[in-house]
């Protein structure tokens, strides 16, 4: 299945093909979880990536749906 991923913070710099307007289209196996997507993008916990879908932060065990719009930004603690 395909999901669309938009990246924020310093994360887009890591993907040379990244289009800030569109984001990335990622193909992953049906039934893949958020952690599988992060692994596919080679994002580890030390990157501080936070994943949000439909205006909610989701945990890494959450199953992804076909066509999901996924945002990944970096952890922050206020400003």
């Amino acid at each position: 299945m395909k999901v669309r991923v938009k990246l924020f913070g310093t994360l887009p710099q890591r993907y040379s093909e990244y289009d800030p307007e569109y984001g990335l289209e990622v193909e992953i196996p049906d039934g893949a979880k958020v952690k599988d997507l992060l692994a596919h993008l080679e994002l580890s916990s030390s990157d501080g990536g936070v994943v949000a879908i439909d205006n909610l932060v989701v945990n890494t065990e959450e199953k992804l749906k076909e066509g999901a719009s996924v945002r990944i930004f970096q952890h922050a603690f206020g400003g």
Partner: peptide, 24 residues
């Protein structure tokens, strides 16, 4: 720390605009 060591230096506190909008 990824936030204080990297992101804040690149985007400043304005980096929160994406995160807080993404949480509605």
């Amino acid at each position: 720390n990824p936030f204080t060591g990297k992101m804040l230096g690149s985007l400043g506190t304005a980096g929160l605009v994406a995160a807080v909008n993404s949480l509605g």
